[in-house]
Computed example of a mutant assay.
Amino acid sequence: MLANVEKCSRHLLVFDKSNFSCARSRHRQHVQAHHYNYRVSILIPECGVMPSAVTAVSRTLGDYYLVKQLPLHEILEPEFINKFVRKGFLYALSYNTRIDQDNCAAVLPTGKLILSVDKDTYEELGLEGQPSTYSHKTTVRYNVTVDLGTAAFVPGEKRYNRVMWALKEKKPLTFDFLMSWHPSGEEEATLPSYFTKYQCKVYQPTVSTRILNATDCPVLLSHELKGKQSEFCSSQEFLDWLGAVFNNIDCNNQADSFLSTYCCPWPSTIMDKACLCTISGFIIPEGINLLLDQLRVYFEEPKLAQWVSMTVHGFADSPVSWGESEHGYHKGGENFYNFVLFSNQDYWLHMAVGTHSGCPP
């Protein structure tokens, strides 16, 4: 047991501090670059009910779809590319596939198809790719990228014909796909109307709310973060506390007979009430930016709370984390980011991934 603890892999945590009104703030770009999200958790201290405007946005984040047993070559068809890839932002992610064991696929809103495949599949496909950055001494996985949106990716062109032949005849791949489409204009096409030959079920994100009472909470000031001359909690300590709150863990343990204990970082205070809202589903960045905008508006009127938090959890088995950066599941599959919004429009941004992932931007 001790040996396993010693081998626990490290993770990567990037911290950014800025103000929403700053011209150089990149908060929207960071949100937009994190394509695949399954949960958003919003914590508002000193609040007994979730603001109606935030609730309204959370219930209108849009439908998403689960398409069962979809042959991958269907996504390469010119009709599909013209309707969905080139006329909006398509998000597609293979469902119930494990990034460390199975073949996985994703279509980014930039129009790129990302394949993460094992060595045997890669050799059978015969497509150009790159060894996974996080393979062992012997390469066991490969990544293949196909730009579906480029004007040259059409029937008759060498690249198109080669990819279509590989995925339709040489090595057909079939996945269950989670999909969401954000059209760039007023489009009448819908994913269910296109995939009539396959089982395509529509879902909406689910929303749940929990009220916390008399909870220990670290004291946060937007300009104070633990360092050489500060006594306030560090970004890592705050994330640890936030995780304890999300999982309903007691933050006031005493060192009695327990092997390990956890206490709220010091200095701390007591939140009389706090509202925790959890949104679960296949949530695209456009909806998350709407939630972020609404939380910024929350402080336009005086509030007892000086900050609110929004945590966005990415899929552990997504082939990418931010942008096209490779995401490799090892032990924890970390893939999330967290905003702490302050009443003066300052914000903290934490971005975390596992060791076997590309560093967040």
Rank of each mutant, 00 (worst) to 15 (best):
L115Q: 01
L115V: 01
S116N: 13
S116L: 15
V117M: 09
D118C: 12
D118S: 04
D118Q: 08
D118I: 02
D118A: 08
K119C: 09
D120Y: 09
D120N: 10
D120K: 13
D120W: 06
D120R: 10
T121Q: 00
T121F: 05
T121W: 03
T121A: 05
T121I: 07
Y122H: 15
Y122L: 00
E123F: 09
E123A: 02
E123K: 11
E123R: 09
E124Y: 09
E124L: 14
L125F: 05
L125G: 05
L125S: 06
G126E: 10
L127C: 03
L127G: 02
L127E: 01
E128M: 06
E128I: 07
E128W: 04
G129D: 05
G129F: 02
G129V: 06
Q130N: 12
Q130R: 12
Q130W: 05
P131R: 11
P131L: 10
P131N: 12
P131E: 11
P131G: 10
S132A: 10
S132V: 03
T133E: 14
T133G: 15
Y134V: 09
Y134T: 05
S135Q: 11
S135R: 08
S135K: 05
S135Y: 02
H136R: 13
H136M: 10
H136P: 00
H136G: 12
H136K: 14
H136D: 14
K137V: 13
K137Q: 13
T138F: 07
T138N: 11
T138W: 02
T139M: 07
T139Y: 11
T139L: 10
V140A: 14
V140S: 15
V140R: 10
V140K: 12
R141I: 04
Y142N: 13
N143G: 09
N143A: 06
V144H: 01
T145L: 08
D147Y: 08
D147N: 15
D147P: 02
L148E: 03
L148R: 05
L148H: 08
L148D: 04
G149A: 15
G149V: 06
T150C: 14
T150V: 08
A152V: 10
A152I: 11
A152W: 08
A152Y: 10
F153I: 02
F153G: 02
F153T: 00
F153L: 03
F153C: 00
F153M: 03
V154W: 05
V154A: 11
V154E: 13
V154R: 15
P155W: 07
G156E: 04
G156C: 06
G156P: 07
G156A: 08
E157P: 00
E157G: 09
K158H: 12
K158A: 14
K158Y: 11
K158C: 05
K158S: 15
R159Y: 10
R159L: 15
R159G: 01
Y160P: 00
Y160V: 01
Y160R: 00
N161H: 06
N161I: 01
N161F: 02
R162M: 10
V163Q: 04
V163C: 07
V163D: 02
M164H: 14
M164T: 05
M164G: 00
W165F: 09
W165R: 14
A166Q: 01
A166E: 00
A166D: 03
